[in-house]
Design a protein around this nucleic acid. Structure first.
Length: 645
RNA sequence: GCCGACAUAGCUCAGGGGUAGAGCAACUGAUUCGUAAUCAGUAGGUCCUCGGUUCAAUUCCGAGUGUCGGCACCA
């Protein structure tokens, strides 16, 4: 006699065990038609699930966001059926729902190509039209293994083998096709609907391990209805327009070329952007008691051997050697990071606890031989500049330094237009330096510090640096890809390896802790993110060209130059456009270049000593007298940290 | 590094076994014009590189390089 509690608090009694389908039918025909699955005591299950005891039930319909995951997961099954129908001999592996869609990984001698997608998609629509019911069944573990082995599905058999012995093995069948799957699913393939699209093919390693076979992955996107699908596709189109590589070319900010793979050629406007960001960062660090240093670009391998980087990252370092017999034993590496160099400065003299925390900063140019497939525009490059710093401190200072760092980072992100960001906590990796006790200490102090700094993080197990756990501060690019920018790493290992020490209050020698930290991460990556964040429409203080003065007639040229000179003297980045072009053309071109302010001057303005100010994105003009315009713009163009409220 | 796709003018792209095309940009001339494209003209190419097939290759084939989308990697 189960009593079913519904989300509105009402309770329904049933005479015996019932399925979700029965319950929905009892509530009403509308719900019976709409229900796709249900939450049984909070757990998402099939409608066909039998309920024999008192429970709370909530039905999931297409109106619920929760249906998206079901639609996407079912779509993955339909995709797999379509592929096996079209390409016999293809093995299935796994196919989960993901953000915005789904994928399925197939094992096949010939990988799929984009040309296969329309055919597969058509077959999927056919399968959806068949509207075959999803039916769940359980199978004994050994039977399951034998069953899939016999069908030549060795990946599925392997999946069962790797499931814990206690796990119930379930199969889902749709028509004649079936798959090993935990579920849940909707009622039938027809519930997938038509708001889906196959997007791309890609290679992916079995189990995400590069030592395994490469599978052929097909990605799709799926939504509740056409409107949602179209909105998503439109969003992708829009996102493509803010791609930093495209804007970098359009706005003439930088370029990349084959002769310097993974290194950026910054053009004048792009470099202006860099300089503004760097100047801003330098002021913020100065104000927060960092000491800026500069360390060598090339350092002998012996130092990297001591630090442990040689052993772990040797293949990823650029090695320099002199072509001269007398130098044949000297091997230098372009520095891949700055930490060992900073320790060298720390070690030049005997330090006192009174000097701690010592915050040593460097805009350090580093080189890493990144795998070719990892390169991405200016976001992942081989030559980059970190806004690096190392805080030498005592164990007791870890928490307060973390709090101060998080505050500084938040404030800087806010100034740069990022109100929110995600934080990941990466703990000890498999390959690591240092004792477990040291790691316990490092992880615990970082966790404590997070608590004190009010940082909410998601755990990222096993992803820490080889010398210590880290916090990663993650920003998202235009199309939703995540990039690690800021980081804070607690390191007890390097000070030990490089023999850093200070004299404590009691006169004893102690090891400092090193906090490795960056806020932007690298200038290249951050500028890439920044370009996408603003779609090239930078706030006035960051814009590489802040103001263009555009005369309407050549009679106003002299005045235009006078206006520009006044702005330049007030610290504004200004250009004049004296070309013999119509004002419409000038407005259009500078608007396309995302210049924030255009000052139009004609005979009237020259006569009255005023300017007609036009803001990017608007078509209104404001007439101001020259002195006021200069004062206002100069004030407005100040970086956020220099602005007086 | 792995799987797949792509590489033609500064940019965006079309084309195709017989010496290559458009739009925009650039350059020259004319136009002095009031808030998102004035008109006319000119110039611009190792069709990524190397090799093969062919009477002939930018086009077909192979290798390499680079880029893009994923995967793996990211001190």
């Amino acid at each position: 006699m189960p009593a079913i509690t519904l989300p509105d608090g009402s309770v329904r009694q049933f005479d015996g065990a019932v399925t979700g389908t029965d319950i929905a039918a009892a509530i009403g025909p509308g719900l019976a038609r709409a229900a796709l699955a249900m939450k049984l005591d909070g757990k998402l299950v099939d409608l066909s699930t039998t309920v024999a005891a008192d429970a709370s039930v909530m039905f999931i319909t297409r109106k619920d966001e929760a249906s998206l995951e079901l639609i996407r997961h079912d779509a993955a099954h339909v995709l797999a059926e379509a592929v096996q129908e079209l390409f016999p001999g293809t093995q299935v592996t796994i196919g989960p729902s993901i953000d915005n869609g789904f994928y399925y990984d197939f094992a096949r001698n010939e990988p799929f190509t984009p040309n296969d997608l329309p055919t597969i998609e058509a077959k999927m629509r056919e399968i959806i039209a068949r509207n075959a019911k999803f039916s769940r069944s359980e199978i004994d573990r050994d039977e399951g293994i034998a069953f899939f082995e016999e069908r030549g599905e060795k990946y599925k058999a392997q999946l069962i083998r790797d499931l814990p012995a206690s796990e119930t093995i379930t199969l889902y069948k749709q028509g004649e096709w079936l798959d090993l799957c935990r579920g849940p699913h909707m009622r039938s393939t027809g519930d997938v609907g038509d708001a889906f699209k196959l997007m791309k093919v890609a290679g992916a390693y079995w189990r995400g391990d590069h030592r395994n076979a490469m599978l052929s992955r097909i990605y799709g996107t799926a939504w509740r209805d056409r409107k949602e699908l179209d909105a998503y596709l439109t969003m992708l189109d829009e996102a493509e327009k803010r791609d930093h590589r495209r804007i970098g070319t359009d706005m003439d900010l930088f370029h990349l070329q084959e002769e310097a793979v993974g290194s950026v050629f910054w053009h004048p406007k792009g470099w202006m952007l860099w300089r503004k960001l760097e100047a801003y960062m330098r002021r913020r660090l100065d104000d927060n008691n960092y000491l800026e240093v500069r360390t060598p670009q090339m350092v002998d391998r012996t130092l990297w051997e001591k630090s442990g980087h040689w052993e772990k990252f040797r293949e990823n370092m650029f090695i320099a050697q002199i072509d001269d017999e007398s130098e044949k034993d000297r091997i230098l590496a372009l520095k891949p990071m700055n930490c060992p160099c900073h320790v060298q400065i720390f070690n030049t003299t005997l330090r006192s606890y009174r000097e701690l925390p010592m915050r040593m900063a460097e805009f350090g140019a580093c080189h890493r031989y990144e795998p070719s497939g990892a390169l991405h525009g200016i976001m992942r490059v081989r030559g980059f500049t970190q806004d690096d710093a190392h805080i030498f401190c005592t164990e007791d200072q870890i928490a307060s330094e973390t709090v101060a760092f998080v505050e500084l980072l938040s404030s800087i992100y806010r100034d740069l237009g990022f109100e929110s960001f995600r934080v990941k906590f990466s703990d000890r990796p498999e390959r690591r330096a240092g004792e477990d006790a040291t790691w316990d200490k490092a992880e615990n102090s970082l966790k404590d510090a997070c608590r004190e700094a009010n940082v909410e993080y998601e755990l990222n197990p096993g992803e820490g640096a080889f010398y210590g756990p880290k916090l990663e501060f993650v920003l998202r690019d235009a199309i939703g890809r995540d990039w690690q920018c800021g980081t804070l790493q607690v390191d007890f290992v390097l000070p030990e390896r490089l023999d850093a020490e200070y004299v404590a209050e009691d006169g004893s020698r102690k090891r400092p802790v090193m906090l490795h930290r960056a806020i932007l991460g690298s200038f290249e990556r951050f500028l890439g993110i920044l370009i996408e964040q603003y779609a090239g429409r930078f706030p006035l203080w960051l814009a590489p060209v802040q103001v263009v003065v555009a005369p309407i007639v050549s009679d106003a040229n002299d005045y235009a130059q006078e206006v520009a000179a006044a702005l330049r003297a007030a610290g504004v980045e200004v250009r004049t456009d004296l070309r013999n072009e119509k004002i419409n053309a000038k407005i259009r071109e500078h608007s396309l270049q995302h210049v924030p302010v255009i000052l139009v001057v004609g005979r009237k303005e020259a006569e009255a000593r005023t300017v007609a100010m036009r803001r990017l994105g608007g078509d209104a003009q404001e007439i101001l007298d020259l002195a006021t315009a200069v004062t206002n713009l100069a004030q407005e163009a100040l970086p956020p940290d220099l602005k007086v409220a």
